[in-house]
Write a protein that binds this DNA or RNA. Structure first.
Length: 277
DNA sequence: CTTAAGTGCTACTGAGCTAA
DNA sequence: TTAGCTCAGTAGCACTTAAG
């Protein structure tokens, strides 16, 4: 398949994921479309904002993840870049990827048991996947700061969608027409790659200015975005809105690289997955 | 007054980088 | 070589503010 041509007709989504108890408030979704060599952003919102009124804070993880799954399934002509690991380091994978996904929830009853199991089998080390080392990710996917994200993301988003055959997870699965495509994205790695890895999360003027600088940097590289959305993104002190925009941009530029994966990625990509950035 | 929602703070692991 | 620092984040707690 010619991903550069076929993929770019698809609507492009970027998701900043969260495994927190109040994940609805922390998950941000952005979307846009490819126009020539530019990316036009159409939307950027908290997941809570597109769920029913009154549910924003009362809803637990289950409802948030259900809402995210619905959103993905609705967009059968889209590609989603998600800030979430779809897999584990090869040493911790016992089966092929699809078997791993299928048995995940029965194998790991809780996020804490998932983390303990990974640590035990890795001899206390925090192992990284081959593509993560290349992408210079700061943390292992079962690190203290990330294990909930990895656990709930695989258990409640990736696994149900894959088990029901509703999505194509690349590059482990074939990209098919009529289904949403999912790829793994790392906004922090994109910023490192662009030499724009500066501190931008927080309430101080410095951090706000940093968010604006990063946004303007990507606007100079073909990101087109309305002034009202720009304000919203810079105003989000947590930086999650900006993360979702970077995820969308990363997905946009990754489209032309999708077909290269088998040639340029490590041998074990089929089981470990591949982090785009 | 009562309760829900928001804010600010701390603790928590390991790895990689830099300065000395 | 080593000390010090920062980093894909979240939970729990005390406290303040808003809504009724």
């Amino acid at each position: 398949m010619d991903f550069a041509a076929t993929g770019k007709k698809r609507r492009i989504f970027g998701v900043d994921f969260s495994g927190a108890k109040d994940s609805c408030k922390k998950i941000w979704v952005s979307s846009g479309r490819s126009v020539g060599s530019t990316l036009h952003i159409e939307d950027c919102y908290r997941l809570a904002d597109q769920m029913g009124s009154g549910s924003s804070s009362r809803s637990g993880r289950d409802e948030c993840f259900s809402a995210l799954r619905s959103l993905i399934v609705r967009e059968n002509d889209a590609v989603f870049g998600i800030d979430l690991s779809f897999s584990l380091p090869e040493h911790l994978m016992e089966y092929d990827w699809e078997s791993f996904i299928e048995s995940f929830s029965s194998k790991y009853p809780s996020a804490e048991q998932f983390r303990e199991s990974c640590r035990d089998r890795a001899g206390g080390k925090e192992l990284k996947r081959t593509s993560e080392i290349k992408a210079k990710v700061p943390f292992s996917v079962y690190n203290l700061r990330l294990y909930r994200q990895t656990y709930f993301g695989i258990r409640d988003v990736i696994s149900p969608l894959v088990n029901d055959g509703l999505v194509c997870v690349l590059p482990m699965q074939e990209a098919k027409d009529g289904k949403p495509w999912l790829i793994e994205i790392c906004p922090a790695c994109r910023l490192k790659k662009e030499d724009m890895y500066i501190q931008y999360k927080g309430k101080t003027d410095d951090r706000r200015n940093a968010r604006r600088r990063i946004l303007e940097y990507f606007m100079n590289k073909g990101l087109v975005i309305s002034s009202s959305l720009q304000k919203l993104i810079v105003a989000d002190t947590e930086g999650d809105a900006l993360d979702s925009i970077i995820a969308t941009y990363s997905t946009f530029i990754s489209l032309s690289r999708l077909s290269e994966i088998p040639d340029t990625s490590p041998e074990n990509y089929a089981i470990e997955g591949y982090t785009f950035f």
